[in-house]
Design a protein around this nucleic acid. Sequence first.
DNA 1: ATGTCACCGTACCGGTGA
Length: 270
Amino acid sequence: MRIATYNVNGVNGRLPVLLRWLEETSPDIICLQELKAPDERFPAAAIEAAGYEAIWHGQKSWNGVAILSRVGTPVETRRGLPDDPDNTQSRYIEAAVNGVLVAGLYLPNGNPRPGPKFDYKLRWFESLVAHAAELVATDMPVVIAGDFNVMPTDRDVYRPERWLDDALFAPEVREAYARLLAQGWTDALRAMHPSETIYTFWDYLRNAYARNAGLRIDHLLLSPALAPRLAAANVDRDVRGWEKSSDHAPVWIELANKPVRASRRKGPKI
DNA sequence: ATGTCACCGTACCGGTGA
């Protein structure tokens, strides 16, 4: 089973690209972020015609998250985090799909730092850490997927020294991500490619994609019950080069039906 | 600051967020 995450940067403006990618790669479950559309403008008919059932949590202009599935109806378990610091921003949706609990999120960007947006990012992250602790305690197979707006380590940034003061790479934010992983989550991309340079985002500015001036900010985290089934993980990098592309590329994991990997040892691996 | 892109309002561009 293939589970993907894709920050589409506008689900209606991106619809041709999204449908082409679905057609070419047929992921089973997809978490979408940055719909930038209210609920009534989610392109449900086109997505259904592509073979997917969907649930979505939209918002006018900004944010917005969705879960798509072609392997059974997503049964929604929650929208918004418990203790969400601002429930007008649509950033979290969660559903049981085909035996896996799937959480899709769009973590606040947080720039400029310092400032109220950065404070909101840290508060939102703490709500996520608290909820993730409850999820991991259930021993369920869980994947938390989405745009975390965090580069976890130096290896995940093309020029780390230039990003130290940015809200996507600030020490407090990386520390929150590390605390999340320390609960027992596996960063699937990094687990499958321990020392590779992997990016999931390239800015529209300054020819970033052609220069491979990228960031790894889209992540799929696997609960201990799910991590042994991780068989493959990668980025559909070429999609970023398509006409009218998002500034993010889709990221995906492949889960086997039975364990294929040793269980993860104690301690964060990022 | 630069640069690019998508959204909205009331709109044929400027403001905002990323």
